[in-house]
Design a protein around this nucleic acid. Structure first.
Length: 608
RNA sequence: CGGGGUGUAGCGCAGUCCGGUAGCGCACCGCGUUUGGGACGCGGGGGUCGGCGGUUCGAGUCCGCCCGCCCCGACCA
């Protein structure tokens, strides 16, 4: 490609809206342009890199038996109504009506379409297992796109779907993806770690996220450097400090004027925070019963939740929602809190409406306690009376709960659940995920097959995603310096950046550079040829900015020294090679760089 | 959705407080010089100052409403 013909140009200064390196550099180097919040055009340079990423995705998917296909971006609403997500998902789903006034959906993901295909195509266990995948555009109207290509609204994703007759088959395909994903990221030059993650609204049995660790990330992870435990904060476990065992003392009301927070309470009574019980109030939304084919129009089912955790800890919303089986949580309003007879700031599980009957079903609320509470005696809790607390509150004796579960948020310094070493928090970007869906979608959409015994059984599914644009941005984030991008050879838009410096008597170098360009192209090498009439400074700076791995310079000076100058973008050294040996040298150098990356691809043990 | 910021030429910005003919750098076009790390000279083009409404003889500037974009939080199959 001649740079004089390239669509798109470099920018000397980055638009002020870009803050992180990958966003600034991809804009400046002419890879991407923003059309609206979280919606981008990918210019030719980016398109070439994305093609390479997508081909790596294809190779690794094909290697584990994947079959590529394409599924639509526009779906009829009926399909999403069948699984209930039409109702459960709010404004994040792009919806419109077609000319016949039918409700339509912009694909956020493709489980519905896969399941619909499966129920039409799959009849017999003989048709299983299968692995299908596609690389397709999706749209999620995210409330807050950010960080350039890291979090966007319109994006392209490789998503694969495994179809199995039994759980062992699912497990096998899941493990194969686990390794294939490591291969993919390593081949793209991106270091990642796999962490267990929340299964969220997808239900299912198990999920891993592949995280690229960077301060620009938006997810928080807890990692143990001692034993390797790593988990998304949403589900991270930790060893809770055991409370001192002591005999239960009698309840005692104590005046605590103005002490509405745990901090104030602990200071006022001069006790450590772990001797207090913190009350947290949320409204939880529960799924309404949706019968397949019969869209539910029932209003959302909401219940008040009274969660209790020790004062030295915080509630983890995801853990709490999972313990409840709720689909969403929101903070309760002060009116809602008072409506169940609790006093904000002095709330207590003791003496609430209905609590003494201990008939959970008649209570207008659910009580959840963290699993550390039953073994933490003599805590200070609210008295449900403005200005008063209760000393020596004991779970079991003074109150009970419907649910006892781990609902505590892990944080920096908490003890590793496996080895008790102090854990660290790091930020990361989720670049891929793998998900054991199980039979959720099969059940909702009626995907069944007949097994060898003639029994009808649900197809067992898994889904596995990698966003190609996000991956591109993360590689840019990982591989750059103050001058620009530094693409790994495997996904660089071109392999060689040929710079022609025309000099005073331009004809010689001009002819030589053009000849070299066509020789390289004829040799099958991907070349970006800077044939523009620009000064050397401009050309070198643009080459550094665009970040193609190998730079060749044809100039009077280099010719006088005997040939062409070669420089790797990721190294400072330059050398002169004979013009006649350029093609061979370049091929060798490319092979060397490819080998460097491919040597990183190795088998990762699957953690059981 | 809450909090903060911002919107003036393709990009970066000044001008807004204190109303009076819209500027600078880069980029772009033409001519000439220059050619190993973002050259120089001369000449040139490009603006509904985010939008609508109001105040005023007069609004980029003051007032009101709305919109876009960015950051933090909430959210995130």
């Amino acid at each position: 490609m001649r740079m004089s013909q390239l669509f798109g140009q470099t920018l000397r200064e980055a638009p002020s809206e870009a803050e992180i390196a990958s966003h600034q550099l991809l804009l400046r180097a002419g890879f991407i342009r923003q059309l609206a919040a979280g919606i981008f055009s990918y210019l030719p340079l980016a398109r070439r890199s994305l093609n390479k990423i997508e081909n790596i995705l294809r190779e690794e998917m094909d290697r584990i038996g994947g079959q590529e296909m394409t599924m639509p971006v526009v779906h009829p609403a009926e399909l999403w109504q069948e699984t209930g997500r039409w109702y459960r998902i709010d404004a994040e789903m792009g919806r419109f009506k077609d000319r016949n006034n039918r409700d339509m959906v912009l694909a956020m993901t493709h489980e519905e379409v896969v399941a619909d295909l499966v129920r039409r195509e799959v009849r017999s266990y003989r048709q299983l297992p299968r692995l299908i995948y596609h690389i397709q555009t999706k749209f999620r109207d995210d409330p807050r796109p950010r960080a350039g290509l890291i979090r966007v609204r319109e994006f392209t994703m490789k998503d694969s779907y495994s179809l199995d007759a039994d759980w062992d088959g699912l497990d096998q395909q899941y493990r194969q993806h686990y390794q294939a994903y490591y291969n993919i990221f390593q081949r793209c030059g991106l270091p990642v770690i796999a962490v267990k993650s929340d299964v969220g609204m997808m239900g299912g049995q198990m999920a891993h996220e592949f995280m690229y660790l960077t301060p620009a990330g938006e997810d928080t992870l807890l990692i143990c450097e001692n034993c390797g435990y790593a988990a998304n904060r949403q589900i991270a476990r930790f060893q809770k400090p055991a409370a001192k065992d002591e005999p239960a003392l009698p309840l005692e009301k104590v005046a605590t004027p103005g002490a509405k927070t745990i901090e104030e309470l602990a200071n006022f009574l001069n006790i450590p925070r772990e001797k207090t019980a913190k009350a947290v109030f949320v409204m939880a939304t529960f799924p309404t019963n949706t019968t397949p084919g019969k869209p539910s129009t029932a209003p959302k089912l909401e219940r008040f939740v009274f969660a209790i955790i020790r004062g030295d800890m915080d509630v983890n919303d995801t853990k709490l929602a999972n313990a409840l089986g709720a689909t969403a949580l929101r903070p309760a309003t002060e009116e809602e809190i008072r409506a169940i007879g609790a006093v904000p700031g002095y709330a207590s599980p003791i003496g609430l409406m209905g609590i003494n009957q201990n008939t959970a079903s008649t209570r207008p609320f659910v009580v959840v306690v963290d699993d550390l509470i039953p073994s933490s005696p003599n805590l200070v809790a609210g008295a449900n009376l403005e200005g008063y607390h209760l000393r020596n509150v004991n779970f079991g004796r003074d109150y009970t709960a419907e649910i006892t579960a781990d609902i505590a948020a892990a944080g920096e310094g908490d003890a590793c659940p496996n080895c008790a070493a102090s854990m660290r928090t790091v930020r990361g970007v989720e670049v891929g995920n793998i998900f054991k869906l199980g039979t959720n979608f099969s059940d909702a959409l009626g995907c069944t097959y007949t097994d060898p015994d003639g029994q009808e059984k649900p197809v067992i599914m898994g889904s596995y995603g990698i966003g190609s644009g996000r991956l591109l941005a993360c590689v840019a984030e990982q591989h750059h310096d103050e001058y620009g991008l530094k693409w790994p050879i495997t996904i660089a838009p071109y392999q060689v950046h040929l710079v022609a410096l025309l000099g005073r008597s331009s004809s010689d170098t001009d002819i030589l550079a053009n000849q070299l360009y066509s020789d390289l192209v004829d040799a099958g090498i991907e070349v970006l040829f800077d044939d523009r009439e620009e000064s050397p400074g401009v050309k070198f700076n643009d080459a550094d900015l665009i970040g193609i791995p190998l730079r060749l310079t044809v100039s009077e000076r280099a010719l006088k020294q005997g040939g062409v100058e070669v420089k790797r973008r990721d190294q400072a050294e330059r050398q002169i090679i004979l013009l006649t040996e350029t093609i061979t040298f370049v091929k060798t150098e490319i092979a060397k760089m490819e080998a460097e990356i491919n040597s990183l691809v190795k088998t990762i043990p699957y953690p059981d």
